[in-house]
């Protein structure tokens, strides 16, 4: 391999980034793979009272108490079922560990910058605030979720804002 080629590869690497693709119902979403800590099954979640419906509760992740959020409920999907296929993506954002429930995880995609289109203005459910764009891959469309913005967003009620924002 010539030095030139290896530099090219590096540039290419730096420009494109990898995404973990997951499904919610029939839709495909993707998150920055660097934010993902692990993927595990949905089990043993302890309910927490008086919180929004999409916060399923907390679970024990090897001794760490981790909140679990169901993105399907957050995005108001019609069919929400918990079965053997139901998967929890454990992400690490803003020094916090959070599990998000999705219908399934399909693959890891590498997206070049020209494959990422800016996110259009959406309706009410999915604010474009926490979308980093739309990834187009031949006939597939991936909704790229900025998981950090989503999870620290006020309406998620995951993070207490009172003290920090003051």
């Amino acid at each position: 391999m010539s030095p030139q080629a290896s530099t090219d590869a590096l540039v290419n690497d730096a420009a494109s980034s990898e995404y973990l693709v997951f499904s919610l119902g029939d839709e495909e979403y993707a998150v920055d793979i660097l934010k993902v800590q692990e993927i595990r099954g949905y089990e043993n979640v302890t309910r927490i009272a008086n919180v929004p419906e999409f916060i399923k509760g907390v679970t024990n992740l090897r001794g760490v108490i981790v909140p679990i959020i169901d993105l399907r409920l957050k995005f108001h999907l019609d069919k929400v079922e918990y079965g053997g296929q139901t998967v929890v993506i454990v992400v690490n954002v803003d020094d916090r560990i959070v599990g998000i429930v999705v219908d399934g995880v399909s693959d890891v995609m590498s997206l070049a910058p020209d494959q990422i289109k800016p996110a259009p203005e959406f309706g009410v459910t999915l604010s474009s605030d926490y979308l980093s764009g739309i990834g187009s891959l031949e006939d597939r469309m991936l909704v790229l979720v900025d998981i950090e913005k989503l999870l620290t967003h006020e309406e998620m009620q995951l993070v207490e804002r009172t003290a920090e924002s003051a």
Partner: peptide, 22 residues
Amino acid sequence: LETNYRKVPGISAATILGDGSV
């Protein structure tokens, strides 16, 4: 609970029981 989550009304903290549940 606040390490990864937030203060929950009526709850002071959490613990892990013998069966691994919270």
